[in-house]
């Protein structure tokens, strides 16, 4: 499931939504929070490309479902005005076993960070992309796709 929204999300609710009736032995969730990039707590603006954002998130989820035996998955990304320490992104998956769940969750957030068209602006300053994010996603995207 994909959601792009201005409002906050509740981790307990999202955890419950990932639980399936049978064989759900592992749930892994990731929450990304807004860091201070040197603006001393001034608000952030999260801009995105409506339409393409949803397409990219859906394709990331689809690829994760193709690579790992997942029972359920969720990607939520917030847009609009956010503050330091706000929750900004949620990725959660459930699976029979932990290895698939850990790997799929990491795959989804790593690829999201370099492929999904979101941009952070802290005050008047657009946050720069990081090479380490590019490398993390590249490791997944260059790995065997079966």
């Amino acid at each position: 499931m994909i959601r792009v929204q201005q409002g906050d999300f509740n981790i307990t609710d999202e955890y419950q939504a990932l639980l399936t009736k049978n064989d759900c032995g592992a749930v892994v969730t990731f929450v990304g929070r807004v860091r201070d990039f040197g603006g001393d707590g001034i608000p952030f603006l999260l801009q995105h490309y409506p339409g393409m954002t949803e397409n990219v998130l859906a394709s990331i989820e689809k690829e994760a479902l193709r690579r790992w035996p997942l029972l359920a998955s969720t990607i939520i990304h917030r847009v609009g005005e956010l503050n330091v320490d706000d929750q900004i992104v949620f990725v959660g998956v459930s699976s029979a076993h932990r290895k698939a769940a850990f790997q799929a969750c990491e795959f989804m957030i790593d690829v999201l960070k370099t492929q999904a068209p979101f941009w952070k602006k802290e005050g008047a300053h657009w946050v720069d992309a990081k090479d380490t994010d590019q490398q993390a996603a590249g490791t997944w995207l260059n790995s065997t796709k079966d």
Binding site: G32, L46, H48, Y49, M52, H77, I88, V89, I109, L112, K113, T114, Q115, A116, P117, F118, W119, K120, W126, V127, D128, A129, D133, Q134
Partner: peptide
Amino acid sequence: VAFFPPVTGG
């Protein structure tokens, strides 16, 4: 057609 800088979400 869209042009944009490297993405910085997440």
